[in-house]
Design a protein around this nucleic acid. Structure first.
Lengths: 191, 191
DNA sequence: TAGATATGAGACAGACCTGTCTCACTACTA
DNA sequence: TAGTAGTGAGACAGGTCTGTCTCATATCTA
């Protein structure tokens, strides 16, 4: 039969682990806590994921895919590149205001897994790079590729910083929005 | 006599813990590892610091004081506000290039201690706020207070994001510098 | 010298960690 | 009905965690 474990349970573990990792961190969240919260047996989890590290990577990749789908939807809702970028800031503003906002899970993962060779580190780098490339491709419609890359990097840094500020309870999304406008304007008309 | 433990040992524990926390994270670094690396007995550490959490706070506050001294020195080395901000970016560029750069310890602390009531969380908020106020007071020399606050927040976000990018091995300090110039220019001349 | 202080070394407790294992049970299917 | 895959429950190993404890020793001072 070559059967594999029930897919529903696997996703349930990922969702539960995501909630706990987000709230309490990765090292501070034990396997016992995850399986208790998910209501499954320990062996069921280890049959789906060979180790905690691989579960973490799976959680991160699942969130990365979800974020990219949301980005694509946002891009379809807006017409001009400026509006697409605006939509991204709107999305972050709503995220910051949500009740279960606890900062960026990818940034937190980078804090706890600082070894560049670790699979978790690589998963974080993939997500951030994909986000940057998404904004870069938007900006290339209104500026040269070189300026688009530079502006996309600046916008990414702004948003990462805004997420950190929001986690500290000092939201500055409006300041970030103004700064983004200044960055895009200066890149669009270099001289 | 009301004597207290040797100050030298206390500082040595702080320095050793700082190195380990920076490299491996807070939860991943055990007390046993700290005392082994510092070459002291466990009780010596617990006589100086009542708990690991208080040691973490002490490490953060020590680094915050050191950073503020460096900021003050940078401000004295430059004449104009624009140059002072430039010196701050120079300092970060050197930091990013240093061998033992592992990202921002305060951001990492925020990732591992996300509870706003936790002393570590509060220590992080204090440091970030002090840094923002430092840049704000610089910018107030060339723009209105309201714009200075907004621009300082934007610069802080940029720098936090640049630190994260640097940790991922994708340095973008030049892009951050260009973005900072655009932000300051647009705040200096609103219309 | 006598006493107070600081420290080193290490045992110890109680809890938690990841990961493995066995056994019984359910559900589905050939 | 018989077999198989998936699961639940929990014991278990080996290690690590924080924090406390005792006892011996070094150092410094009155």
């Amino acid at each position: 039969m070559m059967s594999s474990p029930t897919p529903g349970k696997r996703q349930h573990v990922v969702d539960t682990a995501y909630t706990l990792f987000k709230r309490d961190g990765f090292h501070a969240t034990g396997i016992d806590r995850i399986i208790a919260e998910a209501g499954i047996a320990k062996m069921t989890m280890y049959r789906h994921f060979p180790s905690k590290d691989e579960l973490i990577v799976e959680v991160l990749e699942h969130r990365a895919r979800r974020f990219e789908r949301q980005l694509d939807r946002l891009a379809q809702e807006a017409a001009t590149p400026e509006q697409k970028i605006g939509k991204i800031f709107d999305w972050h503003e709503r995220w910051f205001r949500s009740d279960d906002f606890h900062g960026c899970l990818f940034a937190h993962a980078l804090a706890e897994f600082g070894d560049p060779g670790h699979p978790v580190f690589k998963a974080v780098a993939r997500q951030k790079n994909a986000f940057k490339l998404h904004m870069q491709s938007i900006l290339e419609k209104v500026m040269a590729p070189k300026q688009a890359e530079s502006a996309a990097a600046a916008l990414l840094m702004l948003i990462e910083g805004a997420t950190l500020m929001a986690q500290m309870g000092q939201p500055a999304i409006d300041d970030a929005r103004k700064a983004a406008a200044a960055i895009i304007a200066s890149a669009h008309t270099p001289q």
